[in-house]
Design a protein around this nucleic acid. Structure first.
Lengths: 146, 146
DNA sequence: GCTTTTTCTTTCGGGCATGAAGGAAATGTC
DNA sequence: GACATTTCCTTCATGCCCGAAAGAAAAAGC
């Protein structure tokens, strides 16, 4: 049975705070051990898993607005993690692809985050981690409010 | 029984994406209907619930670094939502208190977020919302990693 | 062919957050 | 009382994200 609890607005605030803490911890380790930020790691994972992608695709998967992707990718290009070229098939589009350095950093980041994720899941417990995953997936993939 | 699932690092990324979407939706409604941002609403709620507070206390409760609180509160002072004065008992400290305008905006924001929270909980289901709340609370109140 | 509309990305201005470092007031120690 | 330490906040430089609007190329309509 569900636990008794007043209806309040804590879920919005709590998610914010939890994400901030998780991001801070991940960012710190990723920066010192892989030389990249957490935001950059997310892009690298996407490219590692699915190959080169257009700006719009990155925007959609990571739920980032287009200007955020422009800035993020620009910094990554400057850092030598990815390359960016106009799509020859549709010259409006820009295609982002991993460099050798980006691939290496992405793989290192993957190991780090797997480690942190395992620690987090252990702290939460398997059932709680699963339902957390499900709830967040739902929030991340459906419209919040009309 | 827990669902079969490979160990991956999705929890960190997912929390980030979900928080971004929630914050974006909340921010949009709060700005148009209450004239404040989501970050400002969090400060107002804290002050509404517990009365005037020092910068450090805001930093701790919201899991924000001190410089973030300085900037956030400064913008709120400029917007007339809060007042800031040095603590007479300890002149190192600065005490933040609601103005009439801040109280009004905070109450309006409370209604809005309660509404959005109810919609979110309905979408998740009561049990999932409860366990989400518990998991996030754990993350928000304990150390992530050594 | 030429104009209008749509699609994709960038520019712009600003809010929000971080780590590192600095300054002012309280406290501890002698 | 004087000095070192600690506590609390701010300043600085940077990164990340947002909404609004502009720019460029493709697609659609005529």
């Amino acid at each position: 049975m569900a636990k008794a609890r007043a209806v309040d607005r804590r879920l919005f605030l709590l998610t914010e705070i939890a994400a901030r803490r998780l991001n801070r911890a991940a960012d710190l380790r990723l920066k010192s051990e892989a030389g990249i930020s957490a935001a950059q790691a997310a892009v690298l994972f996407l490219l590692l898993r699915r190959g080169e992608r257009r700006m719009g695709a990155i925007s959609e998967v990571l739920s980032l607005n287009p200007p955020a992707v422009t800035g993020l990718v620009d910094r990554m290009v400057k850092a030598g993690l990815v390359g960016k070229k106009t799509d020859p098939g549709d010259r409006r589009g820009a295609v982002v692809a991993l460099t050798a350095k980006g691939r290496k950093a992405g793989l290192a980041a993957d190991t780090i985050l797997k480690d942190m994720n395992a620690a987090l899941e252990e702290k939460l417990g398997e059932d709680a981690a699963d339902s957390l995953h499900d709830a967040l997936t739902l929030i991340a993939t459906t419209d919040i409010e009309t």
